[in-house]
Design a protein around this nucleic acid. Structure first.
Lengths: 383, 383
DNA sequence: TCACGTTTGTTAGTAGAACTTCCTTATTAA
DNA sequence: TTAATAAGGAAGTTCTACTAACAAACGTGA
């Protein structure tokens, strides 16, 4: 006879209007063209299960906005009236992408809509923080906006630290930022849409859009100065209560009882964090001066620690893929293999056995590509 | 200059039609009435940000279907025309809920729309499995359908094992079921809508709807014969690649190097799974014959193992709450405290410090309440 | 060669949804 | 009694996508 008054809705939802449906279907058409390339209106209709009439209307709108163009008649000879190709004008728009993950310099680029870097710029940080860093970033963005040869859809900024969904930097210690409404501020200053997200999440977005990561459930672990990750669950990036989802670098993996390891102090003030063994500096320290065999064993021991901490995550979320991103000479070998072996050994066969774990397919520009996706997703609804 | 052809969309989306908007808004109205109780049409309009006209139309539809009724004039004296209360007719409909988590018997109940058990029935399993278990379940459901004093919206079944989103039992070893389309089968046989889900996920649904769990990010760990969990991330239950999300019971937490512990064999064929220390039988074994102090220490040691395995999950998903469900005399005390302490010690302060961990607020009928939510959510879109 | 079927894309008309505007009703406050 | 306030409904507008029908352009096969 136990009962309880119903408390609250699981997911606070917003009202739905007809024009929302229109916007949704518009994104559907755009996403098809983005992912599948040039297609006929009838192709789009089949793929989206909208009618040809509706697709024609949406395509007409998109052509009027200059986002889509007709390419001419399909060559292949099949029966029936030949199809007219339409395609997204990916070459006629660009995106400005900035990567703030590096401690020493800001990396920026003009990026095409398919994630190709067209031109780049750097701004050495020289230890500036706070407002000075904001100004430096603004200058870099202005230069990149001037560099672009085509209209810029927006600016995408990947920053370390905690960023909320409105593009406000809640905390980015390296840059001395806290509670900084970066997105709103730069939209005012630059006059173009600005999207900001955490660097590891941004890289994950890049992997999902341009790389080979699958959308059902995956985690992309980024290994650099620190260790971060982006998590996709049921097709969407996880943000978390404090927008701190993916912060796996400061999970304790080494304590006094861990065989063969010593818990080293971490920048966060605690000891034995994953970052103290898996970050690039930590890995380099660990293998410095070792001969290849000992080095491999040392890397494998870190892989095992990574596997131990990932196993509960993989199992709880029933993930499909684990991707590693960072220097291949450190990660792609004994470390990755040991991590995968460890995860498989520590999870149910049905989950661990079908798990794939590998290096991400994007290189150091993956974050820039992801920043482009931020804009694409925010402005056009394309993911 | 690295690039990649865009591969696939992150989230495969379906077309949007105006009538979908209607259904969505209809659920919005229903959900408001469900969670807030009797309200005027104008109240609903304010809460949903729909117009009064639209709300009036939707309420008229719902009244024609008998789901909603007018209650009369609001008593409180404010200026303006007095409001007419409308309310969901929660007492005029019922749900049949069945809990298959127990190895020895099927537990069923007629449940009101607010999660109250109206009447119950049990069916001893006596070791039957496979088709015989299906027949037993059908008989139980028919009896419960006959027991109901009001029209039944549907049947909600919580089963152990892996259940896909269509209500197909992929694998439920205890019941000898595999690849059984339970939902479709019973809809044909019983003639009412049938919804099936994993028992741990169902309990999580119950906690979120009738209990005190918050929707942003939480995990509900159910401790019974085995150990399972349901995970809510960004307001939605996680299903996972194999629909096996939440299967935390078979994560390895004890290996040969774990101080003070011995890895015991598990039913899954491996050793040292969480289930070998945290399940109710394992806990009872562990504290059997110990005096209170030793018993507390033994429970705390299990709590510590739970905390170690949950810490990476809490940190990666930036969860807000961890709920434990099961016998309070085992869980609510040293075990829970040790687990929370361990999680806090092993995660970033910002994540761990604000984490709350406590017992779920629903008792042994939580699964039945969750099964009612399955129907409510599936039939009315109310969560 | 030529009628026929097929496919594409468009035009016209229909149905559904939610909005704004205006009105009636009912109550309190001055 | 009058003005202000609020609830609820009626009428008409706008937006959306659908079905039905059609013209254009092309292969196929007699």
């Amino acid at each position: 006879m136990r009962a309880g008054a119903p408390r609250r809705a699981l997911r606070p939802t917003a009202k739905a209007l007809p024009e929302h449906a229109r916007a949704h279907n518009r994104s559907l058409v755009l996403a098809h063209l983005f992912h599948e390339g040039a297609s006929s209106r009838a192709d789009i209709a089949r793929s989206t299960s909208l009618t040809r009439v509706t697709v024609s209307g949406l395509v007409a709108d998109l052509m009027a906005e200059g986002l889509v163009e007709e390419l001419g008649i399909r060559a292949e000879g099949k029966v029936g009236k030949p199809a007219t190709f339409v395609a997204m004008r990916t070459e006629s728009f660009q995106v400005v992408a900035v990567d703030l993950a590096d401690d020493t310099r800001m990396q920026g680029a003009v990026v095409s809509l398919v994630g190709e870097v067209v031109s780049r710029r750097e701004a050495p940080l020289d230890g500036v923080t706070g407002d000075a860093a904001v100004d430096l970033l603004e200058t870099l963005c202005r230069q990149l906006l001037a560099d672009a040869q085509h209209p810029v859809l927006g600016v995408g900024i990947a920053s370390p630290g905690v960023i909320d969904t409105d593009g406000r930097v809640v905390a980015a210690p390296n840059l001395g930022w806290s509670d900084l409404p970066l997105s709103a501020l730069f939209e005012r200053r630059l006059g173009v849409p600005v999207h900001v997200a955490n660097d590891a999440n941004t890289r994950a977005l890049g992997e999902f859009t341009y790389g080979t990561a699958s959308g059902s459930g995956a985690i992309v672990v980024t290994v650099g100065q620190g260790v971060g990750s982006g998590v996709v669950v049921d097709g969407a990036l996880v943000s978390g209560r404090h927008n701190a989802a993916g912060e796996i670098g400061h999970v304790t993996v080494v304590d006094d009882e861990t065989a063969g390891e010593t818990p080293y102090p971490c920048a966060c003030g605690r000891r034995g964090c994953l970052e103290t063994v898996l970050s690039v500096p930590a890995l380099r320290r660990r293998i410095a001066g070792l001969d290849p065999q000992d080095s491999d064993a040392a890397l494998a021991s870190v892989g095992r620690l990574l596997g131990i901490s990932l196993a509960p995550v993989v199992s709880t979320l029933d993930l499909e893929e684990v991707l590693l991103s960072g220097p291949p000479e450190l990660l792609d070998g004994p470390l990755l293999e040991a991590a995968l072996t460890t995860i498989r050994a520590r999870t149910m066969p049905v989950i661990g056995h079908e798990l794939t774990m590998r290096m991400g397919s994007l290189d150091e520009d993956g974050v820039l590509a992801g920043a482009a996706v931020l804009v694409l997703s925010g402005q056009l609804g394309v993911t």
